[in-house]
C-alpha cells in the first residue's frame, strides 16, 4: 500500500466535497440497512493492458461485501494484476491502460473526482513476502496513521492494540512492542503486516498469496484469522493452494490466460464445477 505520498497528509476536506471517501459513506448506509451487497467490488467488461500486452480480457466479476473471494488459476493468468487494480497499484507502472469499469460500492475507482490516496486508505494490502519496515513492531502497525499525521499517543496505543488483537498477534507480542519487527517469525511477520493493513480501518483487504512462505501451523493461523476478519472486511485473496481457497473463501474465481473461466460459490467450484478446465485445475490435473 502506498501511503508514503504527501497527499495523504491533507485533511479530508482539503479537496472539497467530491473527494470525500465515498466508500465509507456507502458502507455506513449499508450497515444501517443491515444488508451486504453482492456486487461490492464489480468488474464490468474489464480489460487491462501492460503496454501492448493485454493480460485481462472482458472480466465480468462481482464480489460480495464482507465475504472472502479467492482468485485461483495457473501462474501468469492475471490474478495479481486483477487484485492490484482494485487499489490501482498498477497505475504506478508506465504504459498501463484499462477498458471497461471497476466499481467499489457502486463508484468507479477511476472516477476523476476520487483521489487515489483516499482509495488506497480504504484498502489494505498483504503480500506474499511479509514486508515489515525496519522499525519496531509498534511503529510498523501505526505506520499509516503516522503518515496521516496522527500524533496523540492514546490514539496510537489504542490502534496498535486493536489491530494486533484483530490480527491474532497481540498475546504473542504485547510485552515486546518496541522490539524490531525483524525479531518475529515469518508467520508472525505476516500477521504483523495484516495488523498494519487493518490499522487504518480499511474496507477491503487484498492478499496476494499471503501464506506461500509459511509452514502449515502459521498458515492455519492466517486462515482462521481471515475467517474472523471477514466479519468486518471484504477480503480478496490470491492463492495457489487449492485446499486453502476451499477452506477460507466464500466465492472462487478461476482464471486462465487472462480470462475468467468460472466464478461461483466456493462449494460449487470445488465440488461441482461447471467447466471442465476448472475441474481439471482444482483437481490438480491441469495442463
Amino acid at each position: 500500500m502506498d501511503t508514503s505520498n504527501d497527499n495523504s497528509e491533507r485533511s479530508p476536506d482539503a479537496g472539497g466535497e467530491v473527494s470525500q471517501p465515498r466508500m465509507q459513506v456507502e458502507r455506513q448506509a449499508l450497515g444501517e440497512r443491515g444488508t451486504y451487497r453482492q456486487d461490492y467490488i464489480s468488474f464490468l467488461n474489464y480489460s487491462f493492458f501492460y503496454g501492448p500486452a493485454q493480460v485481462l480480457y472482458d472480466i465480468e466479476l462481482a464480489m460480495p461485501d464482507r465475504q472472502v473471494t479467492a482468485l485461483i488459476g495457473p501462474s501468469g493468468c492475471g490474478k495479481s494484476t486483477l487484485l492490484r487494480n482494485i487499489n490501482r497499484m498498477n497505475d504506478l507502472i508506465d504504459g498501463v491502460r484499462h477498458e471497461g469499469e471497476l466499481l467499489i460500492g457502486g463508484e468507479s475507482v477511476y472516477d476523476p473526482h476520487l483521489e487515489v490516496i483516499s482509495l488506497r486508505k480504504q484498502i489494505g494490502m498483504v503480500f506474499q513476502k511479509s514486508n515489515p519496515f525496519p522499525k519496531s513492531i509498534y511503529e510498523n502497525v501505526i505506520y499509516g496513521l503516522r503518515v496521516a499525521g496522527r500524533k496523540k499517543k492514546s490514539v496510537l496505543d489504542e490502534a496498535v492494540e486493536r489491530s494486533l488483537r484483530r490480527s491474532a498477534l497481540w498475546d504473542e507480542v504485547k510485552d515486546r512492542l518496541h522490539e524490531s519487527a525483524f525479531s518475529l517469525s515469518g508467520g508472525q511477520m505476516q500477521r504483523l503486516c495484516i495488523a498494519r493493513a487493518i490499522a487504518n480501518d480499511p474496507e477491503i483487504i487484498l492478499m496476494d498469496e499471503p501464506c506461500s512462505a509459511l509452514d502449515p501451523v502459521a498458515t492455519g493461523k492466517i486462515e482462521d484469522l481471515i475467517h474472523e476478519l471477514k466479519e468486518n472486511y471484504t477480503i480478496v485473496i490470491v492463492t495457489h493452494n487449492m485446499q486453502q481457497a476451499a477452506r477460507v473463501s466464500d466465492r472462487t474465481a478461476f482464471f486462465y490466460l487472462g480470462k475468467l473461466v468460472e466464478y461461483g460459490e466456493t462449494q460449487q467450484i470445488f465440488m461441482n464445477p461447471a467447466n471442465s478446465q476448472t475441474e481439471a485445475y482444482v483437481s490438480g490435473r491441469f495442463g
Binding site: 485446499q243 476451499a246 477452506r247 466456493t266 462449494q267 470445488f270 465440488m271
Partner: peptide, 9 residues
C-alpha cells in the same frame, strides 16, 4: 460430511 471432505480437506 461431503461438504466437509470437499472444502476442509
Amino acid at each position: 460430511a461431503i461438504r466437509f471432505v470437499g472444502l476442509r480437506g
